[in-house]
Design a protein around this nucleic acid. Sequence first.
DNA 1: TTGACAGGTGACCGTTTAGTCACCTATTAT
DNA 2: ATAATAGGTGACTAAACGGTCACCTGTCAA
Lengths: 105, 105
Amino acid sequence: MDDDNIFKALADPTRRLLLDLLFQRDGRTLKELQAGVAMTRFGVMKHLKVLEDAGLVVTRRSGREKLHFLNAVPIRTIHDRWINKYREREVSALLALKTKLERKD
Amino acid sequence: MDDDNIFKALADPTRRLLLDLLFQRDGRTLKELQAGVAMTRFGVMKHLKVLEDAGLVVTRRSGREKLHFLNAVPIRTIHDRWINKYREREVSALLALKTKLERKD
DNA sequence: TTGACAGGTGACCGTTTAGTCACCTATTAT
DNA sequence: ATAATAGGTGACTAAACGGTCACCTGTCAA
Protein backbone atom coordinates (compact mmCIF):
# COMPACT_ATOMS: atom_id res chain seq x y z
CA MET A 1 0.00 0.00 0.00
CA ASP A 2 1.22 3.47 -0.86
CA ASP A 3 -0.28 5.18 2.17
CA ASP A 4 2.02 3.22 4.41
CA ASN A 5 4.77 5.84 4.57
CA ILE A 6 2.24 8.48 5.45
CA PHE A 7 0.67 6.49 8.28
CA LYS A 8 4.09 5.53 9.59
CA ALA A 9 5.25 9.14 9.44
CA LEU A 10 2.23 10.27 11.42
CA ALA A 11 2.75 7.59 14.06
CA ASP A 12 5.45 9.46 15.97
CA PRO A 13 4.50 12.33 18.32
CA THR A 14 7.68 14.30 17.58
CA ARG A 15 6.90 14.21 13.88
CA ARG A 16 3.34 15.36 14.49
CA LEU A 17 4.77 18.19 16.58
CA LEU A 18 7.07 19.16 13.71
CA LEU A 19 4.09 19.24 11.37
CA ASP A 20 2.28 21.43 13.87
CA LEU A 21 5.21 23.82 14.03
CA LEU A 22 5.27 24.04 10.24
CA PHE A 23 1.52 24.48 10.29
CA GLN A 24 1.97 27.57 12.46
CA ARG A 25 4.69 28.97 10.26
CA ASP A 26 6.21 27.57 7.11
CA GLY A 27 9.68 27.86 5.62
CA ARG A 28 11.66 27.22 8.78
CA THR A 29 15.22 26.00 8.93
CA LEU A 30 16.38 22.90 10.72
CA LYS A 31 17.88 25.00 13.51
CA GLU A 32 14.63 26.83 14.00
CA LEU A 33 12.62 23.61 14.18
CA GLN A 34 15.09 22.04 16.55
CA ALA A 35 14.53 24.85 19.04
CA GLY A 36 10.93 23.77 19.55
CA VAL A 37 11.56 20.08 20.02
CA ALA A 38 14.01 19.25 22.86
CA MET A 39 16.20 16.91 20.86
CA THR A 40 19.54 17.11 19.12
CA ARG A 41 19.81 18.37 15.57
CA PHE A 42 20.38 14.83 14.37
CA GLY A 43 17.19 13.45 15.77
CA VAL A 44 15.18 16.26 14.24
CA MET A 45 16.95 15.70 10.92
CA LYS A 46 15.95 12.05 10.90
CA HIS A 47 12.34 12.89 11.61
CA LEU A 48 12.30 15.52 8.89
CA LYS A 49 13.67 12.96 6.46
CA VAL A 50 10.83 10.58 7.28
CA LEU A 51 8.33 13.39 6.78
CA GLU A 52 9.98 14.37 3.52
CA ASP A 53 9.98 10.79 2.21
CA ALA A 54 6.29 10.59 2.99
CA GLY A 55 5.74 13.81 1.04
CA LEU A 56 4.41 15.63 4.07
CA VAL A 57 7.26 18.12 4.07
CA VAL A 58 8.85 19.73 1.07
CA THR A 59 12.14 21.63 1.13
CA ARG A 60 14.10 24.31 -0.69
CA ARG A 61 17.76 25.17 -0.31
CA SER A 62 18.63 28.79 0.18
CA GLY A 63 22.35 29.31 0.55
CA ARG A 64 23.53 27.29 3.49
CA GLU A 65 20.01 27.00 4.86
CA LYS A 66 17.33 24.47 4.07
CA LEU A 67 13.79 25.71 4.31
CA HIS A 68 10.98 23.33 5.23
CA PHE A 69 7.43 23.65 4.02
CA LEU A 70 4.32 21.75 4.96
CA ASN A 71 2.54 19.79 2.25
CA ALA A 72 -0.95 18.76 3.27
CA VAL A 73 -1.76 16.81 0.12
CA PRO A 74 -0.82 13.37 1.53
CA ILE A 75 -3.00 14.02 4.54
CA ARG A 76 -5.82 14.75 2.18
CA THR A 77 -5.04 11.51 0.38
CA ILE A 78 -5.40 9.33 3.45
CA HIS A 79 -8.44 11.30 4.44
CA ASP A 80 -10.16 10.65 1.14
CA ARG A 81 -9.02 7.08 0.66
CA TRP A 82 -9.28 5.94 4.23
CA ILE A 83 -10.52 8.10 7.05
CA ASN A 84 -13.63 9.28 5.30
CA LYS A 85 -14.78 5.73 4.63
CA TYR A 86 -14.92 4.98 8.33
CA ARG A 87 -16.48 8.31 9.18
CA GLU A 88 -19.26 7.63 6.72
CA ARG A 89 -19.88 4.30 8.32
CA GLU A 90 -20.18 6.01 11.66
CA VAL A 91 -22.69 8.45 10.26
CA SER A 92 -24.80 5.62 8.86
CA ALA A 93 -24.58 3.81 12.19
CA LEU A 94 -25.91 6.91 13.90
CA LEU A 95 -28.68 7.16 11.35
CA ALA A 96 -29.61 3.54 11.95
CA LEU A 97 -29.73 4.21 15.67
CA LYS A 98 -31.86 7.27 15.10
CA THR A 99 -34.27 5.29 12.95
CA LYS A 100 -34.39 2.54 15.50
CA LEU A 101 -35.17 4.98 18.29
CA GLU A 102 -37.80 6.67 16.23
CA ARG A 103 -39.50 3.38 15.51
CA LYS A 104 -39.97 2.92 19.25
CA ASP A 105 -42.48 5.78 19.40
CA MET B 1 -1.10 13.21 23.55
CA ASP B 2 -4.04 10.86 23.69
CA ASP B 3 -4.28 10.27 19.96
CA ASP B 4 -0.95 8.54 20.05
CA ASN B 5 -2.31 5.01 20.46
CA ILE B 6 -4.65 5.56 17.57
CA PHE B 7 -1.96 6.81 15.21
CA LYS B 8 0.35 3.99 16.28
CA ALA B 9 -2.40 1.43 15.78
CA LEU B 10 -3.05 2.73 12.28
CA ALA B 11 0.63 2.65 11.38
CA ASP B 12 0.74 -1.07 10.64
CA PRO B 13 -0.61 -2.40 7.32
CA THR B 14 -1.84 -5.67 8.86
CA ARG B 15 -3.87 -3.74 11.40
CA ARG B 16 -5.37 -1.55 8.69
CA LEU B 17 -6.25 -4.73 6.81
CA LEU B 18 -7.97 -6.09 9.91
CA LEU B 19 -9.97 -2.89 10.20
CA ASP B 20 -10.92 -3.24 6.55
CA LEU B 21 -12.08 -6.81 7.13
CA LEU B 22 -14.20 -5.67 10.05
CA PHE B 23 -15.46 -2.81 7.95
CA GLN B 24 -16.76 -5.31 5.40
CA ARG B 25 -18.37 -7.44 8.06
CA ASP B 26 -18.47 -6.98 11.80
CA GLY B 27 -18.63 -9.47 14.64
CA ARG B 28 -16.01 -11.89 13.40
CA THR B 29 -14.05 -14.31 15.53
CA LEU B 30 -10.29 -14.45 15.78
CA LYS B 31 -10.23 -17.58 13.61
CA GLU B 32 -12.26 -15.90 10.93
CA LEU B 33 -10.01 -12.85 10.88
CA GLN B 34 -6.89 -14.95 10.81
CA ALA B 35 -8.04 -16.61 7.60
CA GLY B 36 -7.78 -13.33 5.72
CA VAL B 37 -4.36 -12.32 6.93
CA ALA B 38 -1.60 -14.90 6.24
CA MET B 39 -0.17 -14.95 9.73
CA THR B 40 -0.42 -17.22 12.74
CA ARG B 41 -3.24 -16.86 15.22
CA PHE B 42 -0.84 -15.30 17.70
CA GLY B 43 0.25 -12.51 15.45
CA VAL B 44 -3.34 -11.62 14.66
CA MET B 45 -4.17 -11.72 18.36
CA LYS B 46 -1.45 -9.22 19.14
CA HIS B 47 -2.63 -6.87 16.43
CA LEU B 48 -6.21 -7.12 17.65
CA LYS B 49 -5.01 -6.26 21.14
CA VAL B 50 -3.33 -3.11 19.85
CA LEU B 51 -6.51 -2.15 18.00
CA GLU B 52 -8.58 -2.85 21.08
CA ASP B 53 -6.31 -0.78 23.32
CA ALA B 54 -6.67 2.08 20.88
CA GLY B 55 -10.45 1.72 21.04
CA LEU B 56 -10.69 0.96 17.34
CA VAL B 57 -12.04 -2.52 17.95
CA VAL B 58 -14.51 -3.55 20.59
CA THR B 59 -15.23 -7.14 21.59
CA ARG B 60 -17.89 -9.34 23.11
CA ARG B 61 -17.48 -12.86 24.41
CA SER B 62 -19.97 -15.42 23.25
CA GLY B 63 -19.28 -18.84 24.71
CA ARG B 64 -15.82 -19.86 23.67
CA GLU B 65 -15.79 -17.33 20.87
CA LYS B 66 -14.76 -13.69 20.98
CA LEU B 67 -16.53 -11.44 18.54
CA HIS B 68 -14.79 -8.35 17.18
CA PHE B 69 -16.56 -5.17 16.20
CA LEU B 70 -15.28 -2.06 14.51
CA ASN B 71 -15.51 1.22 16.39
CA ALA B 72 -15.00 4.21 14.14
CA VAL B 73 -15.22 6.84 16.87
CA PRO B 74 -11.44 7.17 17.42
CA ILE B 75 -10.97 7.64 13.69
CA ARG B 76 -13.46 10.41 13.83
CA THR B 77 -11.54 11.87 16.75
CA ILE B 78 -8.27 12.12 14.90
CA HIS B 79 -10.11 13.37 11.88
CA ASP B 80 -11.72 16.21 13.80
CA ARG B 81 -8.75 17.10 15.98
CA TRP B 82 -6.03 16.63 13.43
CA ILE B 83 -6.67 15.71 9.83
CA ASN B 84 -9.30 18.32 9.22
CA LYS B 85 -7.01 21.13 10.36
CA TYR B 86 -4.53 20.32 7.60
CA ARG B 87 -7.22 19.81 5.02
CA GLU B 88 -8.62 23.23 5.76
CA ARG B 89 -5.21 24.74 5.30
CA GLU B 90 -4.99 23.08 1.93
CA VAL B 91 -8.32 24.53 0.94
CA SER B 92 -7.24 28.01 1.97
CA ALA B 93 -3.99 27.57 0.07
CA LEU B 94 -6.00 26.75 -3.02
CA LEU B 95 -8.18 29.78 -2.44
CA ALA B 96 -5.13 31.98 -2.13
CA LEU B 97 -3.79 30.61 -5.38
CA LYS B 98 -7.12 31.22 -7.05
CA THR B 99 -7.18 34.81 -5.83
CA LYS B 100 -3.62 35.33 -6.97
CA LEU B 101 -4.41 34.00 -10.42
CA GLU B 102 -7.50 36.12 -10.68
CA ARG B 103 -5.56 39.25 -9.82
CA LYS B 104 -3.37 38.65 -12.85
CA ASP B 105 -6.24 39.45 -15.21
C1' DT C 1 41.38 33.50 4.12
C1' DT C 2 40.05 31.91 8.12
C1' DG C 3 36.59 31.07 11.35
C1' DA C 4 31.94 30.50 12.48
C1' DC C 5 27.70 28.59 11.00
C1' DA C 6 24.02 25.44 8.72
C1' DG C 7 23.53 21.21 7.31
C1' DG C 8 24.78 16.05 6.15
C1' DT C 9 26.66 11.01 6.85
C1' DG C 10 27.67 6.58 8.94
C1' DA C 11 28.29 4.01 12.87
C1' DC C 12 26.51 2.89 17.05
C1' DC C 13 23.22 1.53 20.94
C1' DG C 14 19.13 0.68 23.74
C1' DT C 15 14.25 0.00 23.21
C1' DT C 16 10.22 -1.29 20.88
C1' DT C 17 7.79 -4.09 17.74
C1' DA C 18 6.21 -8.00 14.70
C1' DG C 19 5.94 -12.56 14.63
C1' DT C 20 6.38 -17.48 16.27
C1' DC C 21 6.11 -21.25 19.53
C1' DA C 22 5.25 -24.38 23.61
C1' DC C 23 2.02 -24.69 26.75
C1' DC C 24 -2.48 -23.59 29.22
C1' DT C 25 -7.76 -22.71 30.08
C1' DA C 26 -12.50 -22.75 28.97
C1' DT C 27 -16.36 -24.27 26.18
C1' DT C 28 -18.81 -27.31 23.27
C1' DA C 29 -20.18 -31.67 20.84
C1' DT C 30 -20.05 -36.68 20.73
C1' DA D 1 -16.07 -38.30 30.15
C1' DT D 2 -13.25 -36.98 26.55
C1' DA D 3 -11.83 -35.07 22.40
C1' DA D 4 -12.01 -31.23 19.50
C1' DT D 5 -12.33 -26.36 19.30
C1' DA D 6 -11.62 -21.22 20.40
C1' DG D 7 -8.94 -18.42 22.72
C1' DG D 8 -4.96 -16.80 26.02
C1' DT D 9 0.01 -16.25 28.18
C1' DG D 10 4.96 -15.75 28.57
C1' DA D 11 9.30 -16.37 26.61
C1' DC D 12 11.95 -15.71 22.75
C1' DT D 13 14.19 -13.78 18.20
C1' DA D 14 15.05 -10.75 14.44
C1' DA D 15 14.25 -6.47 12.59
C1' DA D 16 12.91 -1.66 12.91
C1' DC D 17 13.13 2.60 15.31
C1' DG D 18 14.50 6.70 18.08
C1' DG D 19 18.23 9.05 19.46
C1' DT D 20 23.20 10.44 19.95
C1' DC D 21 27.94 11.27 18.50
C1' DA D 22 32.40 11.97 15.82
C1' DC D 23 33.43 13.72 11.82
C1' DC D 24 32.72 16.01 7.14
C1' DT D 25 31.04 19.58 3.44
C1' DG D 26 29.44 23.83 1.81
C1' DT D 27 28.40 28.86 2.61
C1' DC D 28 28.80 33.26 4.47
C1' DA D 29 31.02 37.24 6.98
C1' DA D 30 35.15 39.60 9.26
